[in-house]
Write a protein that binds this DNA or RNA. Structure first.
Lengths: 157, 157
DNA sequence: TTGCTCCTCACGTCACGTGAGGTGGC
DNA sequence: TTGCTCCTCACGTCACGTGAGGTGGC
């Protein structure tokens, strides 16, 4: 006997997936995520496990991918696609996801270093008599050291 | 003698900042980044160092902040704001940036683990006779182990 | 003077937000 | 039957994309 999947109306499913009705209907329109079924009256019914799909969409979106691109990555087998090709395609999608994650993490690490340098330099600025202003080109270069400011200080002065 | 800042027309500045004219004009409209000066004919002229500001805006945007929020974080001293208050505000902005970076990196690390689990399980799936299908509830739960699928496989089946 | 760059509208797009007006379901 | 949830338009918004038509600058 096969377990009957537990179905949820769009409101309950939206709460579970921490999203909202409009977004789910828009995903359906784009072919990203269709409800498992509809009632006679047109009500959408979702599987609980579809929450994972919503999460994956959100994750990929936060990495900067457009929804159309995400659809191409994660949508199911084409007509007549074999089992092996199917598994291969999924593996490719997951590896692509992992690659994007690694790239993004490296970029964030670099950013974090830049912010750190700016915070360090800012401490030095506290003991300096100069104030960034148009007349000293906003302390660029630094009047104490003669060197360029950390990028994130230059951005804020 | 104070170094004259090197000024660039919007096209050259856009290339340097790896962005485009429309984005720079939109940033100006929102009060995020104004050109250092304008010519008689209305041409915008930017400082080379403003590239750092563009980069910071992009970085914060990629963390999910709206441009209006970014403006509030990074815009200069209010009228009559003292030097100490000015430096404090910058420090607050940088620390907030760092906090967002740390949160995001933790989230990405968690994602990367989920993708890794899905890739591992997918290898097991290759040696399994079952194929995910509506009739077996898309292999949920797994017919071999009786356990739930990794979230990112559940998302893709 | 020529050609390239820049200017200001202004309409289009993506991923939703937010009602309006009407119907389904325990 | 009542009230809550859902339905389908459809217009609004944010952060730009993409021309149209016209002018500035080495």
């Amino acid at each position: 006997m096969i377990a009957r999947p537990h179905l949820l109306k769009i409101g309950d499913f939206a709460r579970l997936a921490e999203t909202n009705l409009r977004t789910l209907r828009y995903y359906e329109e784009l072919g990203l995520l269709a409800p498992a079924t509809r009632s006679e009256g047109g009500f959408r019914y979702y599987r609980e496990t579809d929450v994972h799909r919503v999460n994956m969409i959100r994750d990929l979106q936060a990495l900067g991918l457009a929804l159309e691109r995400i659809r191409d990555l994660i949508t199911g087998p084409g007509p007549g696609e074999g089992r092996a090709a199917y598994l291969d395609r999924i593996q490719t999608a997951l590896r692509e996801h992992d690659r994007l994650l690694r790239e993004r993490m490296a970029a964030l690490e670099a950013q974090r270093e830049r912010v750190g340098h700016a915070l360090q330099k800012l401490e030095q600025c506290r003991g300096c008599p100069h104030t960034p202003h148009a007349e000293n080109n906003f302390c660029e270069p630094c009047l104490q050291t003669g060197r360029e400011l950390p990028e994130h200080l230059s951005a804020l002065f």
